[in-house]
Design a protein around this nucleic acid. Sequence first.
DNA 1: TTTTAACCTGACCAAACGGTCAAGATAAAT
DNA 2: ATTTATCTTGACCGTTTGGTCAGGTTAAAA
Lengths: 212, 212
Amino acid sequence: MSTKPAVNGAHKAAIRQENEEQILAAAERVFADFGFKGATTARIAETANVPKANVHYYFSTKEALYRRIMEDVCDHWLEAAMTFDNSADPAVILRGYIEAKMDLSRARPYGSRLWAHEIIRGAKFSSEYISSTVKNWLDSRVVVIRGWIDEGKMDDVEPYTLMYMIFATTQHYADFGRQIEIFNNNKPLSDAQFAEAKENVVRIILKGVGLS
Amino acid sequence: MSTKPAVNGAHKAAIRQENEEQILAAAERVFADFGFKGATTARIAETANVPKANVHYYFSTKEALYRRIMEDVCDHWLEAAMTFDNSADPAVILRGYIEAKMDLSRARPYGSRLWAHEIIRGAKFSSEYISSTVKNWLDSRVVVIRGWIDEGKMDDVEPYTLMYMIFATTQHYADFGRQIEIFNNNKPLSDAQFAEAKENVVRIILKGVGLS
DNA sequence: TTTTAACCTGACCAAACGGTCAAGATAAAT
DNA sequence: ATTTATCTTGACCGTTTGGTCAGGTTAAAA
């Protein structure tokens, strides 16, 4: 078929990248659906449309593949985390963060569900990452929130509880998406329904902490 | 050892009950920790301190054991659900329901985590139960909330979103307990910390929907 | 054109899995 | 005392699993 010459082995590199991406995407889905132990390399291979042996050609073990995907998921979450700066109005910042996390649950539900699996299982692969990178990020945001409280900009709420509430509620739309779908007469939330949910979540939380 | 005579085979019945309970308790833990596929009958047997073959003597298959535990978990949840009546003051009712769910997450975290596994996996064993019993319960509570809104007792929020928020936040303390523990300097929340969290969750939600 | 390095994959393997079973132990009924 | 019904368990089995590997194909380099 395509016998492009391509400078300096660009074709081979493209093949590698495309296959890796295909396998990673498939693995993210399968791990999210079945958890680490429940996911089988055969199913990942089938989903990615490659022979099973090829999965092991690109990723030495199932665990290596799992770790790689966890890293990718974390990268995306830290991006969303960056919307939580500490310069502007608390209401604007919190709204932006909640909306970013809701959007991420909608756009990348598999990542969120994978994370949920990992934590429920006891965070065996990621406890180090959580206790360093994630904890540092969380603690710094708590300081910011305590600052707002001290300045009288919002109610005196326990900041960790507030953050956990935001985590839980936003990720619920990914992790428990199937349950929400069943409650919604077996139909996934429409864009309009999701937008309404997002707006309500923002409104309830902001008002709940005295920011509206 | 104990050779109590016991009227009408009471001893055998007691043995049966004790073994079943031991296996059920072990299975709830193991299923919660590893999910359906990840849990092994060998591990359940080991946790219950009985030989593997004995697990199959009392519960024909792994799936039968899983279903039985799911039923038990649901029964407990419906109990908590009953605190959500529609007679009294909305703020009192919502507070009571949220507190009951928080307490359940604290007392029976394995049940909550088992449920989370089940939903993330696509609710293959329980979609029928959710779309009938649970959905009926939820829909009737939504009607109650809509009534409160129409009577001007609370803000005009989308009732399902509010309920999902309560589900997500309260269950987060069970499902993501390990993550919370890590954030809390690798120590489980103390009773005082948990009580503070519970009070904050209630306060934020009630104020958020205009009930305080 | 030849060589080399990377990619591909059907066939295979040891380990772990859910589940079975025969044979023994124990307690209730006769 | 004997029979009967239930409980107990080590050993076993077919299947599925993650992972390997030899031998092939393809594309880049020489």
